[in-house]
Design a protein around this nucleic acid. Structure first.
Length: 585
RNA sequence: GUGCCCGUAGCUCAAUCGGAUAGAGCACCAGCCUUCUAAGCUGGGGGUUACAGGUUCGAUUCCUGUCGGGCACGCCA
C-alpha cells in the first residue's frame, strides 16, 4: 500500500470529493471545498459541508445533494465509508488499515515527518526583534523573538527559503541619547559632578559601560563641566518637549566637546549593546542570517536615492521648511515628514529605503514582526511601497502584542526609560529558556499575553511545557527499558493497534502535517503549541490505560511503534518552537 | 475626540474561508501508585460567547449601534 500524495489523507479525500462535486456543479457558483476534522468521533475522520453550500445554487435539499455526491465518489483504498448526517454533512471514515500503515511513515520520515512543500522554495524574509541597541532586551522583545524565530522555523519546514533579519537602528537620536548618557555617567565616575537628566537612559548598564570606558581610557574623555552644567535641564518643572530640546542641546554640546572622540563612544556603546543583544538572543535559541544596519543606508546613499525616486514620482512636497510624503494618497491619516526642517532625514525616510532594499534583494514575500504599538505606522510604509510601484501585498506586517508579566498574581512593571524593567535575560534565568519560548507562543500573537512567572517556573503538572516534555521523556524511558534498536520499529507490524485510544492517537499524528501547514499559512505558531499539548494529553491518557511492554511480541512492537511515532512528532514540534525535548526529567 | 485591535466558564485561553451538542488547562469536589517516570490519569459541577438589532438554512465568527478594555494618533524611533 502506498500513502496518498503528501502523505495526506485530507488532501486525498478532498480530491475524491472534488471529482464527485464537479459532476453536479452548476456554472458560476463559488463554493469552498475544504474538509474539516469533526469534533465528534461519530462524525468520522473528515467531514464536508459542501452539500449545504450547494443547496442554494441547486435549489435542492442538502441531504439529497449529499446522498448523490456519495454515490459519485470514486473508489479509494483508504475510504472505509461515507455517510450523510441528518443535516447534510458528508462524513468520511478512514480505513483502519490506512491508519495503521500511516504510523510507519512517521517513523520512516523521522525528523522530516510533517514537513510540506507548500512554500515551493520561495524566498521569504522574516524581520523581527529589531530593537534599538540602546539597552538590554526586555520581555516585550522576547515575545517578538520567540514568535519570529518559531514562525521562521515553521515556514522553513513548509518549504520556504527563509531569511531571518534584524534591522539595527544604529543611526538615530536614541543612539545619541545613549552615547550622551554613557558619557555623563563616565564624567560622574571621573569626579565631574553634574545632574543626570531625567530623560536620559537611567539603566545600570549605562554605568557599566562608563566604567569600561574609564578602565580602558582613564580620564581621556573628561572635559570641563561649566558649559555642561549650564545646559542640563531642570529636574522637573519643564514640559516634556522642553526637556527633549534640552537633551538635544546636550547632545550637540557632547558632539562639539568630544569632537572625534564622540564617534568612538558612539561606536563603543553600539558594539557593546548589540553584542549583548546578540548573545542574549543566541542563548535564547534565536539566530539571524542578517544584521542590517540603518546607518549603511545613509552611508551608501540609499536614502537620498529613494527620496529622489519619490520626488520624481511627484510624491513629495515642501511645507514649513520640511519635506513631506503624500501618504494620504494611500489611505494614511496624514502626510508624513521624510526630511526635517534641520535637513535630517526622519526614521520613516530610512525605513522607506530599507523596504525598497528588501525588495531589491529579491524576496518574493516579506514579513515584518512588529510590536502592536506600531500599528499606526503600517499605512505609511505600505503607502511608500505603492509610491515606489512595489506590490504592498508582498509586505506583510505581523503584529505582536506586549507580554505582561505576573508575579504573585500582580503585574510586574516594564519601562525601558525608567530603568525598572524586566529584561529578557532575567526572565530566561528565572523560568528557563524552554518555558519562556513555549509560554511566549502559547497565545495568538496579536493578543495580549499574561505571562504567569510562577506557573512558568513551577515544576508541576500545571505547567504546559513540562507536560509536553514529560510525555517525550516518558516514552524514552519505556523504549530504553525495552532495550532494542528503535530503527526496527519502522517496519513493525501494526495490525494489532485497534482500540479506540490507539486509533485516535494515530489520527492525531495524521493531523500533524495539516497543523504545521496551517501554522505557516496563518502565521500562527500557537497552533503547534496547542497541538502538542493535545497530543501529550492523549498520550498520557493512553499511558495510564495501557501497558506497552507486554509479552505478546507483535502487540508489543506495534505499541512501541505507536509511542515512538508520538515521541518523534513531539520532538519535531518542540524543535520548531525552540524548546528542547528531554529524554529524562 | 479620530483610527485599529479586543470582550467566550470564577481565572488564563482555544475554536482552521460562517457549520453539527462552543472546547482545553487552572481553581473547586470525588477517586487512582506492589505494575513501563504520579511533572501522570479517571469522573463531576460550571456558559444568554459584553449588550441590542441585522444578514441566512445556520453567527463566537460577517454588518450596524451601545457599553467596557488596550494601543496609536511627533519634523521620536
Amino acid at each position: 500500500m502506498t500513502v496518498p500524495k503528501q502523505n495526506n489523507f485530507k488532501v486525498h479525500f478532498t480530491e475524491l470529493l472534488y471529482q464527485a462535486t464537479e459532476k453536479i456543479l452548476p456554472p458560476n457558483c463559488e463554493i469552498f471545498l475544504e474538509l474539516a476534522r469533526p469534533k465528534q468521533v461519530e462524525h468520522g475522520d473528515y467531514s464536508s459541508n459542501i452539500a449545504l453550500q450547494l443547496a442554494r445554487f441547486l435549489h435542492k435539499n442538502p441531504k439529497e445533494i449529499a446522498q448523490s455526491l456519495i454515490q459519485l465518489l470514486p473508489d479509494s483504498p483508504y475510504l472505509e465509508k461515507a455517510e450523510v448526517a441528518g443535516n447534510g454533512f458528508i462524513n468520511l471514515f478512514l480505513k483502519k488499515s490506512a491508519k495503521q500503515q500511516f504510523l510507519l511513515q512517521v517513523l520512516q520520515q523521522g525528523s522530516f515527518f510533517g514537513t510540506t512543500d507548500i512554500g515551493k522554495g520561495k524566498q521569504i524574509q522574516v524581520e523581527f526583534v529589531s530593537a534599538n541597541p540602546t539597552g538590554p532586551l526586555h520581555v516585550g522583545h522576547g515575545r517578538g523573538a520567540a514568535y519570529g524565530a518559531s514562525l521562521a522555523n515553521i515556514l522553513r519546514a513548509n518549504g520556504y527559503s527563509v531569511t531571518r533579519e534584524y534591522y539595527v537602528n544604529d543611526a538615530g537620536r536614541q543612539m545619541d541619547i545613549l552615547t550622551l548618557s554613557t558619557w555623563l555617567r563616565y564624567l560622574e565616575l571621573c569626579g565631574v559632578s553634574i545632574p543626570f537628566p531625567g530623560n536620559a537612559y537611567q539603566g545600570e548598564y549605562v554605568i557599566d559601560m562608563a566604567k569600561m570606558i574609564k578602565k580602558a581610557h582613564g580620564d581621556r574623555y573628561v572635559h570641563e563641566p561649566h558649559e555642561l552644567i549650564a545646559r542640563v535641564p531642570p529636574a522637573s518643572e519643564s514640559s516634556i518637549s522642553n526637556e527633549d530640546e534640552q537633551l538635544d542641546e546636550l547632545i550637540q554640546v557632547a558632539k562639539k566637546t568630544l569632537s572625534e572622540d564622540y564617534a568612538y563612544i558612539h561606536q563603543f556603546v553600539l558594539t557593546e549593546q548589540l553584542g549583548d543583544c546578540r548573545n542574549d538572543l543566541m542563548e535564547f535559541g534565536v539566530e539571524f542570517d542578517t544584521w542590517f544596519s540603518e546607518q549603511s543606508l545613509f552611508d551608501n546613499g540609499s536614502i537620498a536615492k529613494v527620496i529622489a525616486m519619490l520626488e520624481k514620482n511627484n510624491m513629495l512636497y515642501q511645507q514649513d521648511g520640511a519635506l513631506w510624503f503624500r501618504s494620504t494618497r494611500f489611505g494614511d491619516e496624514k502626510d508624513r515628514v521624510v526630511q526635517r526642517e534641520n535637513g535630517q532625514y526622519t526614521y520613516f525616510a530610512s525605513d522607506i529605503a530599507y523596504h525598497l532594499n528588501k525588495f531589491e534583494r529579491g524576496f518574493s514575500h516579506i514579513i515584518n514582526v512588529w510590536g502592536a504599538d506600531h500599528h499606526g505606522y503600517i499605512p505609511r510604509v505600505k503607502g511608500a511601497m505603492q509610491a515606489l510601484s512595489l506590490d504592498p501585498k508582498k509586505l506583510e506586517i505581523a503584529l505582536v502584542q506586549f507580554a505582561v508579566l505576573y508575579r504573585d498574581g500582580k503585574k510586574a512593571s516594564m519601562s525601558t526609560r525608567s530603568g525598572e524593567f524586566v529584561t529578557l535575560r532575567e526572565l530566561r534565568k528565572e523560568v528557563g529558556n524552554d518555558a519562556a519560548r513555549f509560554f511566549y507562543v502559547l497565545r495568538k500573537s496579536d493578543q495580549h499575553l499574561d505571562f504567569d512567572l510562577d506557573l512558568a517556573k513551577s515544576q508541576s503538572n500545571d505547567n504546559p511545557v513540562y507536560y509536553v516534555q514529560y510525555a517525550h521523556a516518558r516514552i524514552n524511558s519505556v523504549i530504553t527499558q525495552w532495550g532494542e534498536a528503535v530503527s526496527i520499529l519502522s517496519n513493525a507490524p501494526t495490525d494489532s493497534l485497534s482500540n479506540e485510544a490507539e486509533l485516535t492517537l494515530i489520527q492525531k499524528l495524521i493531523d500533524y502535517p495539516d497543523t504545521l501547514e496551517a501554522a505557516a499559512k496563518e502565521r500562527a505558531p500557537h497552533f503547534l503549541a496547542f497541538y502538542l499539548k493535545d497530543l501529550a494529553s492523549a498520550f498520557h491518557s493512553y499511558y495510564n490505560s495501557t501497558r506497552f511492554l507486554v509479552p505478546e511480541q507483535e502487540l508489543k512492537l506495534a505499541r512501541l511503534a505507536l509511542i515512538a511515532a508520538i515521541q518523534q512528532v513531539i520532538a519535531n514540534g518542540l524543535n520548531l518552537l525552540g524548546v528542547t525535548a528531554p529524554n529524562e526529567m
